[in-house]
């Protein structure tokens, strides 16, 4: 690292293009949208940036706050379920025989090889009224009903007159289910990374000192995997909070999330300033969460250094 001072030209040659790229195509549009959020719609495509806070005031209307709240609730629930489901998966991969590990990791990231839209439609095919889950449930119902008839209880119709398909689509449950399905790998991978680094002798020492498996998990595994848990929670929560495809395709009329509202502002409503304000509200909250995490980890390392 000491040589780039000596080779200034080489340094700038390598440093400039990516910087220019980021400034031009990431920071500049972002700044533009940020500007829009303080603007006013004047015509079909004309926006005057006049420093008004009206868009933010509108965004804090209870109608939108409720959608914000619902988005947070969905994202939090998704994160929690991902953590509960992902932890055992990560533990299983960590303790799997070495030759199975790459295969299991590959299976974890395999969904990324398919477009999200296609995966979501596949989920619809599984969950809809005439979908695979209901086919299986119906088959099970018919067998159970036939068994009841065979033992002479057929006339009582203990399982109902006919099979009632489960309504698994176009409601809030479907949205959370879809979000969990999409975001699970984001949780599993950082958890796996943290658990894989964990020295086995800590677990053995805990068992050796008389702790049960469960106690070892709670007192040793979880605290030592905490950085991985925090990373997993953050990189699950943030994209889950901004999801729009999943609630759009799997949700019902009352399950739209904030990203759906934002999308509508930019597209059908053609109200870019308001959409920009909503976007940036979401971003401020995300930044705040990241700042909290940074402060927490700084606090922890300061505590350890003390």
């Amino acid at each position: 690292m000491d040589t780039w001072h000596a080779h200034r030209r080489a340094f700038w040659t390598f440093f400039l293009p990516p910087t220019a790229w980021l400034v031009l195509f990431f920071l500049a549009p972002l700044a533009l949208v940020w500007g829009f959020s303080f603007g006013e719609k004047r015509g079909l495509v004309e926006i005057a940036i006049n420093g008004t806070l009206e868009n933010y005031v509108r965004a804090l209307d209870p109608l939108y706050l409720r959608i914000f709240g619902k988005s947070f609730w969905f994202a939090a629930l998704t994160t929690l379920i991902c953590l509960a489901v992902g932890f055992p998966v990560a533990v299983a991969i960590t303790f799997a025989p070495p030759r199975w590990k790459p295969i299991l990791l590959l299976l974890t990231i395999l969904p990324f090889w398919t477009n999200l839209l296609i995966r979501t439609y596949a989920l619809i095919a599984v969950l809809r009224t005439r979908g695979y889950v209901n086919f299986a449930a119906e088959w099970g119902w018919e067998r159970a009903d036939a068994a009841l008839a065979w033992v002479g209880l057929g006339d009582l119709h203990l399982l109902g007159e006919r099979f009632e398909p489960l309504a698994m689509l176009y409601n809030n449950t479907a949205v959370v289910f879809g979000l969990v399905y999409v975001h699970l790998p984001f949780m599993v991978l950082p958890l796996y990374a943290a658990l894989d680094r964990l020295e086995r002798s800590y677990l053995e020492a805990s068992l050796d000192l008389g702790a049960s498996q469960l106690r070892t998990f709670a007192s040793v595994v979880v605290p030592l995997a905490l950085p991985g848990i925090v990373s997993g929670v953050i990189i699950t929560f943030i994209p889950a909070l901004g999801s729009f495809l999943t609630p759009d395709l799997l949700g019902g009329t009352d399950s739209q999330m904030i990203a759906n509202v934002i999308e509508r502002q930019f597209k059908s409503a053609n109200d870019w300033p308001f959409g920009a304000a909503l976007s940036f509200l979401l971003m401020y909250v995300t930044f705040f969460a990241l700042a909290l995490r940074a402060a927490a980890s700084r606090g922890r390392s300061a505590m350890e250094a003390a």
């Binding site: 002798s201 800590y202 020492a205 000192l209 605290p223």
Partner: peptide
């Protein structure tokens, strides 16, 4: 029985 591990495995947290 109790064990003293080669790496000591003193819980870092």
């Amino acid at each position: 029985v109790n064990m003293v591990f080669q790496s000591y495995a003193v819980f870092p947290h």
